[in-house]
């Protein structure tokens, strides 16, 4: 396959960026999008040019490292998959493909297509955990969890933290990521004791980096794991409840 790439090149966080056009010729259709970038990079290196920097790790859609804007859609035209699972057979011979990094103030560009997603780590640090010891894997079965709660929590836990939701959002909001993490823990019995504290801490941290939700629904469509915006409604409900009740003063007045 012969394609043309229009790729965002930026030497560093504070360097000005620009689009560069590269030919991507003789690409096997069975190559993944990242393998296509590898091929292009090998040729760039052979010609003494800087290869295009991009994040990647597992290349099987479970780590959340990869993720670029492809033709104006996060993770490209194939919905429900990460960039690494997108194959070149999805494109047509002679296509011009525009490749850009996630764009959000909370995700500053590190280099080319790589962005700094540590704002997500700050949100997780604020409350994306359960403080009590829940034992090792077999002990998980000690506390029975109703099937529907377990299923809903598992669906939310499918979030790989890739940042496509933020990239897709016209407001650069991280609502879907934060809601997925909250719903994952808030639906489980182990997560109940810290539910209010967790919700307030994670939402407040989210708001210090990202925009706010206007219910476009772009994030849900962009999510490679198909996480529903229903989780955002649950987060909104939990946050209101948490702010109206204050457990710190419960029974002490």
């Amino acid at each position: 396959m012969n394609l043309t790439l229009r790729v965002w090149r930026q030497a560093g966080a504070d360097a000005p960026g620009r689009f560069e056009t590269y030919p991507a010729e003789g690409i096997p259709p069975e190559a993944s999008f990242l393998e296509m970038l590898d091929i292009v990079n090998e040729r760039l290196e052979r010609n003494g040019a800087e290869p295009i920097a991009f994040d990647h790790d597992c290349r099987e859609g479970i780590c959340g490292s990869c993720g670029v804007m492809i033709d104006g859609v996060p993770h490209g035209p194939q919905l429900g998959t990460a960039t690494c699972q997108l194959h070149m057979r999805r494109f047509d011979e002679g296509d011009t493909v525009v490749v850009e990094p996630w764009r959000a103030a909370g995700f500053p560009v590190v280099r080319d297509l790589m962005v700094d997603r540590s704002a997500f780590d700050r949100i997780i640090e604020a409350g994306g955990y359960i403080s009590v010891s829940t034992g090792s894997a077999p002990d998980a079965n000690e506390i029975p969890v109703p099937k529907d709660a377990a299923d809903a929590a598992m669906d939310a836990a499918a979030c790989i933290g890739c940042g496509a939701c933020v990239a897709a959002c016209p407001n650069s909001a991280a609502q879907l990521f934060t809601a997925a993490k909250l719903v994952h823990l808030n639906l489980l019995p182990q997560g109940q004791a810290e539910r209010d504290r967790r919700t307030v801490a994670m939402v407040d941290t989210m708001e210090s980096f990202f925009g706010s939700c206007t219910n476009h629904g772009e994030c849900e469509t962009a999510c490679p794991k198909g996480i529903s915006i229903d989780t955002i409604a649950l987060m909104n409900r939990d946050y209101l409840k948490a702010r109206l009740s204050d457990r710190r003063l419960l029974g002490r007045s």
Binding site: G72, A104, S172, S212, H216, E218
Partner: peptide
């Protein structure tokens, strides 16, 4: 919260 817009943004849901 935004930092620039995309080249040829494709809205799918909004």
């Amino acid at each position: 919260a935004r930092s620039g817009s995309y080249d040829g943004r494709n809205y799918l849901a909004a």
